[in-house]
C-alpha cells in the first residue's frame, strides 16, 4: 500500500471564486542528517516536486526541501472555473511517485 495522503476540497464551489485546498502526505522528508538505529546515515529524501493540476492545467506547484516538516501539509487556494478534477502528483529524491485526486462541482 502506498504511504498514504489526505486531500480536502469543498464539494461545491462558485465559478470565479477561490476555494481552499488542503493536502497532507505521509513522507519522512529525510533531511540527510539523521542516522538510523544502527548508526548508519539515512539518505536525504524529500518531495522535491509537487504539482496540482485542475482539469489538466497546472495551477499550483511546490519545491519542498528538508526545511519542510515530515508528513508535509499544504493549504492553498485555487480559483474555480469548471466542474472536474484536481489531481495532485509528487515525486521524492528516491524517485518514488505519489498521487491523489479530488472532484469538484462548480456552480453559477
Amino acid at each position: 500500500m502506498a504511504a498514504g495522503s489526505r486531500v480536502q476540497v469543498p464539494t461545491e464551489v462558485r465559478r470565479g471564486e477561490p476555494f481552499e485546498v488542503k493536502i497532507s502526505v505521509r513522507h519522512p522528508m529525510e533531511t540527510g542528517f539523521r542516522v538510523d538505529d544502527m548508526g548508519k546515515p539515512i539518505a536525504r529524501n524529500t518531495i522535491h516536486e509537487f504539482i496540482c493540476r485542475y482539469n489538466g492545467t497546472p495551477v499550483f506547484a511546490a519545491n519542498l526541501g528538508s526545511g519542510i516538516a515530515a508528513n508535509p501539509y499544504l493549504r492553498f487556494f485555487v480559483t474555480a472555473l469548471d466542474s472536474g478534477e484536481l489531481k495532485f502528483e509528487w515525486v521524492d529524491d528516491a524517485g518514488e511517485r505519489g498521487d491523489a485526486a479530488a472532484t469538484l462541482r462548480v456552480t453559477g
Binding site: G16, E17, P18, M29, T31, T57, P58, V59, F60, A61, A62, N63, L64, G65, S66, G67, I68, A69, P72, Y73, L74, R75, F76, F77, V78, T79
Partner: peptide, 21 residues
C-alpha cells in the same frame, strides 16, 4: 532555501500554509 511555491496561473487568492523545520 526551504521551499518555493509557484503559481503557473494567476491566483485569485494568495494564502499558503505549511509546516517548516
Amino acid at each position: 532555501k526551504m521551499a518555493q511555491f509557484d503559481f503557473p496561473v494567476a491566483p485569485a487568492k494568495v494564502e499558503i500554509e505549511s509546516r517548516v523545520r
